[in-house]
Amino acid sequence: GIVVAEVFVNLPYMVRILKSAFSAVNPRYENVAKTLGCTETGAFLQVTLPLARPGLVAGTTITWAKSMGEFGAVLMLAGATTMRTETLPIALYLNISTGDLDLAVAASVILIIISLCALAVVEHYADDAHVF
């Protein structure tokens, strides 16, 4: 249930970022590769995909970071069972509701560190690709 919730909630973000990453690649490069003997698949794999790589990495990082913080969809589809359907946001929720503030603070610090790392990766690749 957790995987289904994450996919359906976060897939639109990934598709939107991938669309902008691939639309930023000039189609003339692919056409030149085809005139030089590449097949359609070869031109995509050897020209378009490497040019869109920074956008792909940034999109994957953003989508993964967003799915790490997903709370509502996971709670509705999988529930909040300790050590079975527990993600970091649900662990934070369960620890606050049971009064274990030390574990709640630890979970929130881990989420903050993940967010900062995701932002650093996106900023690094966004500067290279000019996708965002």
Rank of each mutant, 00 (worst) to 15 (best):
V3A: 13
V3H: 01
V4P: 01
V7F: 13
V7Y: 04
V7L: 15
V9K: 07
V9S: 08
N10W: 00
N10L: 10
L11S: 08
L11V: 02
P12V: 00
Y13C: 03
R16G: 06
R16K: 04
I17V: 12
I17Q: 01
S20I: 02
A21C: 03
F22P: 07
S23A: 07
S23K: 10
S23Y: 01
V25S: 05
P27N: 07
P27R: 09
Y29V: 04
N31L: 05
V32S: 12
A33R: 03
K34I: 09
K34S: 03
T35N: 15
L36V: 05
G37C: 04
T39E: 09
E40Q: 11
T41E: 14
T41A: 14
A43M: 07
T48E: 14
T48H: 11
L49R: 12
P50A: 09
L51D: 07
A52I: 10
G55S: 04
G59M: 01
G59S: 02
G59P: 02
T60Y: 05
T61R: 03
T61D: 06
I62M: 15
I62H: 06
K66M: 14
G69V: 06
E70Y: 11
F71V: 05
A73K: 08
L75V: 15
L75G: 10
M76L: 13
A78H: 11
G79W: 06
M83E: 15
R84W: 01
T85H: 11
T85R: 10
E86T: 09
P89N: 13
P89G: 12
A91H: 15
A91R: 15
Y93M: 15
N95G: 05
I96W: 10
I96H: 05
T98F: 07
T98M: 13
G99R: 08
D102V: 03
L103G: 05
L103S: 12
V105C: 01
V105P: 00
A106K: 05
A107V: 00
S108T: 04
V109A: 10
V109M: 08
V109H: 02
L111E: 12
L111A: 10
S115P: 03
S115T: 08
L116W: 04
L116H: 01
L116I: 14
L116K: 03
C117R: 00
A118E: 08
A118P: 07
V121D: 06
V121T: 08
V121M: 09
V122K: 07
E123P: 00
Y125C: 09
D128R: 15
D128T: 09
V131W: 09
V131Y: 09
V131K: 03
